[in-house]
Design a protein around this nucleic acid. Structure first.
Length: 115
DNA sequence: CCATTGACTTAAG
DNA sequence: CCTTAAGCCAATG
């Protein structure tokens, strides 16, 4: 152990990354759903913050995480504002007016679909 | 150390 | 439909 990163540093964030990686292709979920699955539904803000920090992690499909209305609230934080929508459309997810069409059908709830 | 902000959500008016 | 307010908690100034 040379650098010894803080062991506790990977509590909430790491779990968020894990769940996010498990989102199936062509499906989406919400910050609240992830937060709820991890225990605190009201910590959805932290999920958003985790996504912000997830930029350094290539395996985390942050574009599959939207808010509870299917709105692409985090699109501003991508390389370009239209990148998020583009990535979604690339997975056959239709986006209209920054909102995921059929969001409620494409919605992937970790606490229900993930065991 | 205190204040503000934010990729959120829910409730109330 | 729009505005406040509250709850949550890390990061930033």
């Amino acid at each position: 152990m040379i650098k010894s990163l803080n062991d506790k540093n990977k509590d909430f964030f790491e779990q968020v990354y894990d769940v996010t990686r498990l989102i199936p292709y062509g499906r989406v979920t919400s910050y609240g759903a992830i937060a709820s699955y991890l225990g605190s539904k009201k910590s959805s803000r932290m999920v958003g913050w985790a996504m912000n920090a997830a930029h350094r992690i290539p395996d985390v499909p942050a574009h599959r995480v939207v808010n509870r209305n299917g709105l692409l609230t985090g699109k501003m934080h991508f390389e370009s504002p239209d990148q998020m929508q583009r990535l979604l459309e690339m997975e056959n997810i239709e986006v209209k007016g920054d909102v995921v069409v059929n969001f409620k059908i494409l919605f992937w709830d970790p606490s229900k679909e993930l065991i």
